[in-house]
């Protein structure tokens, strides 16, 4: 006798090839297209907490003296402190708060550039969240990437975070005036950087005083 039994559960496989970082890369390409159409040069400024990213931006704004032709996207977890500091220099600023996220991503930049008046803007400076790891994994669509480190972070920052320094177009060693007091040898840091990234100009700077800022501007082709 033929017995029809209830069907048991069917176990099956779903094969995928889902690259989890691809979505960001696609959005970053879209951002680049939009920036190129608007003839805007965008610079992603990355670096650890307290390395002097905001101070570098303020120094660049002072030196370039282009008023509202420079836009700044200030990324931070929850505060508007950096945006307020930058606004003092007369630039057009938009604050992007990431909440708990440790990096800006291409989607946040997409929203920022769509929510910002870009007419007349020639340069867009993007201050990433203070972090030497995660921003390296999330391109934003900027034309150039600057990594800011400082002597107060100790002598091993570059050796410990090679990925982000390798991807940098310009490396800025900030607070150079404090090197002696911190017992940090700037030449060794430069050697560490050269070893993995011989192409990026390595610029010693003191953003608060304006030392080295012309070199940063030159290296970024912003003259």
């Amino acid at each position: 006798m033929k017995i029809i039994k209830p069907k048991g559960p069917e176990i099956f496989d779903i094969e995928l090839e889902k690259d989890l970082l691809a979505k960001n890369r696609v959005l970053a390409k879209g951002n680049r297209r939009k920036l190129d159409q608007s003839k805007i040069i965008a610079i992603d400024i990355m670096g650890s907490i307290g390395s002097g990213k905001t101070s570098l931006i303020k120094a660049l704004l002072r030196k370039l003296n282009m008023g509202e032709a420079i836009g700044v996207i200030a990324g931070d977890l929850t505060t508007t402190i950096d945006a307020e500091r930058i606004e003092e220099e007369g630039a057009r600023v938009i604050q992007v708060n990431t909440g708990k996220e440790c990096h800006l991503d291409a989607n946040l930049i997409h929203r920022a550039i769509n929510g910002m008046k870009l007419d007349g803007v020639k340069i867009l400076l993007i201050e990433n969240v203070g972090n030497l790891i995660c921003p390296g994994e999330f391109p934003l669509g900027a034309h150039k990437r600057v990594v800011v480190t400082s002597v107060t972070e100790g002598p091993y920052m570059i050796v410990k975070h090679p990925y982000i320094f390798r991807e940098a177009d310009v490396i800025v060693l900030n607070k150079i005036d404090l090197a002696k007091a911190m017992k940090v040898n700037p030449s060794q840091l430069e050697k560490d950087a050269r070893k993995i990234n011989p192409r990026a100009p390595f610029i010693k700077a003191n953003a608060l005083k304006g030392t080295g800022i012309s070199k940063v501007i030159e290296a970024l082709g912003l003259e």
Binding site: P9, D13, E15, L20
Partner: peptide, 12 residues
């Protein structure tokens, strides 16, 4: 440098 989702085993 990959970060991929490759396979899901499920019950229907």
């Amino acid at each position: 440098r990959e970060c991929m989702l490759r396979k899901i085993q499920a019950v229907r």
